[in-house]
Amino acid sequence: MTTSTRTAPNVKAAAIATFLVFGMNGLVFASWAARIPAVTQTLHLTSGQMGTLLLCTAVGSLVALPSAGWVVGRIGTANTVRAAGLLAASAGAAIAFSLMAESVAGTALALFFFGVGVGLWDVSQNIEGADVEHRLARTIMPQFHAAFSGGAFVGALIGAWLSEIGVGLPEHLLVIAGVVVLLTFTAPRYFMPHETTGTAPDDGAPAVKGPSAWRDSRTLLIGVVVLGATLTEGAGNDWIAKASVDGLNASESTGALLFALFVAAMTLMRFVGGRAIDRFGRVAVLRVSMAAAAVGLALFVFAGNLVLAGVGAALWGIGAALAFPMGMSAAADDPKHAAARVSVVSTIGYVAFLAGPPLLGYLGDHTGIHMALLAIGVPILMALWLAGAAKPLVKSN
C-alpha cells in the first residue's frame, strides 16, 4: 500500500522510463497525424476515403484493447510495451513501403497492425503510469500524458519541417520506426514488475482484466466522460491539419503548424494542470476544461483567418489536455481495483479516440471536414454534464 524505502529509487526510475515511453508514443502518433494531407495526396483519396484508412487503425486498436489487460497480466507491462513497439515499428515500415508503391490496400493492412501495436502500447503504459502514481502517492498522471503531448509536438514540428523541405513521408516513417525499436526495447527495463502492485493478485490477470470492472457504474460513467474527452483530443490530432488546408486554404506546412500549436497548448496544460487539480479538484477542472474545448472548437471552425484559428486551436488543446489523465487517476482511486478499472476506462476512451475521427471523415465528405468538426460539440457537452463521476473516492494523503 505504501512504497517502501527499498523500492523508492526503482519507482523514480520507473517514472522516468514511463515518461519516455509516453513521449515516444506521442512522437509516433504525430509523425503520422501531422502528415495525413500527404497521404491523401499520395493515394489520391477524398476525406471519406481517408476516414476509411483511419478506421483501419481504429479497428486494429479495438481488436487489441480488450485483450491488452490479459497480455499485461501474462507478460507484464515492460514486455507488452516491447512487443507493441516492435509491432508498431514494423507496421510503420510497412506503411512506408505501401506509400512508395501507392498501394491503398497495403497501407490499410499496415495501418490495421499499426493500430494493434498502438492499442497494446497505450493500455500498458497507462497501467504502468497508474501503478507508479500510486506508489509515489502523488498526482503525476498528467505529466505522463504531457510527455505524450510533448512527443506529439516534436513529431508535428518534424513533420512540418520535413514537409516544407520536401522529404517524403515514407522516409520519415522508416527513421521513426528505427527510433521506436531502440527506445521501447531499452526504457521498459526500468518498469516496476506489474505483479508486485500492492493489493493486486499475484498473477496480475484478474486485476488487469476483471469482468467486475465492466459492471461498476462509477467506472463506466468515468469511461463515458473520457470517451467524450478523448474524441475531442482525437479529432484535433487527426483533423486539424487537414481542416486547416481545406477550410482555411492553408498550405500543408501551415496546417501542420496549427496542429503543432494545438499539441503545444495541450502539452503545457498537462505539465501545469496537476496544480490546478490539487487546488480546485478534478470535477471543477474537468468542467472548465470541457467548456474551454467547446469555445476553442467553435473559434477554430468559424474563424475567418489563421490568427483566430490558431487561438481556437490553442484553446481547444488546453481544454482537451487534462480529461484523459484525470480519468485514469479517477479509475485508479481504489488501489485494490486500479489496474482493472484503468484498463476499462482506457478501452472506452480509445474507442472514441480511434474510431471517432474516421467517422468525422465520412461526415466531411458531405459538409467539408472543417464544418464536420462541430459534431464533437455533442460529446464535449456530455462530458461536461457527467464530470461529477470523477469525484475522488477518498482524499489524497
Rank of each mutant, 00 (worst) to 15 (best):
T2R: 08
T2P: 09
T3H: 01
A13E: 09
A17K: 07
A17D: 08
V21G: 06
G26M: 01
W32T: 10
W32Q: 08
A34Y: 03
P37T: 10
T40G: 14
T42P: 09
L43A: 10
H44T: 13
Q49S: 13
T52H: 10
L54W: 07
A58I: 04
V59A: 11
V59H: 02
L62T: 04
P66F: 08
G73E: 08
A78W: 08
A78I: 06
G85H: 04
L86W: 06
L86K: 00
A91C: 05
A93M: 15
A94P: 09
E102W: 07
V104Y: 13
A110T: 03
L111V: 11
G115C: 02
G115Y: 07
V116W: 02
D122M: 03
Q125Y: 09
D131R: 15
H134Q: 15
R138I: 07
Q143L: 15
Q143I: 14
A147G: 04
S149D: 01
G150H: 04
G150L: 12
G155Y: 00
L157S: 00
I158T: 11
A160G: 03
A160K: 08
S163P: 02
G166L: 06
V167R: 11
P170C: 00
P170R: 00
P170K: 00
E171R: 13
V175M: 04
I176T: 10
A177C: 02
L183H: 06
T184R: 02
F185W: 14
A187M: 13
P193K: 15
H194W: 11
H194I: 13
T197H: 13
P201Y: 06
G204T: 13
G204I: 04
A205T: 15
A207N: 03
V208S: 15
D216S: 13
S217K: 11
L221A: 11
V224G: 04
V226Y: 00
L227I: 03
A229M: 10
A229T: 07
L231Y: 03
E233M: 05
G236S: 03
D238A: 13
I240V: 15
A243R: 01
S244P: 12
V245E: 15
V245G: 11
G247C: 07
A250R: 12
A250N: 11
A256V: 07
L258K: 04
A260N: 01
L261T: 14
F262T: 07
V263Q: 08
V263H: 01
A264M: 01
F271L: 15
V272K: 09
I277K: 05
D278M: 14
R279N: 12
F280D: 09
R282I: 13
R282W: 02
V285F: 10
R287H: 09
V288I: 14
A293W: 10
A294I: 12
A294T: 12
V295F: 03
F300G: 08
A303N: 05
A303H: 02
N305A: 14
A309D: 12
G310E: 02
G312M: 06
A313M: 07
A314W: 08
G317W: 05
G319R: 10
A320T: 11
S329R: 09
A331Y: 01
K336T: 12
A340F: 06
R341V: 01
V345M: 06
G349Y: 00
V351D: 01
V351P: 05
G356C: 06
Y362T: 14
D365W: 09
T367A: 15
I376C: 05
G377L: 14
V378A: 15
A383S: 15
A389P: 12
V394E: 13
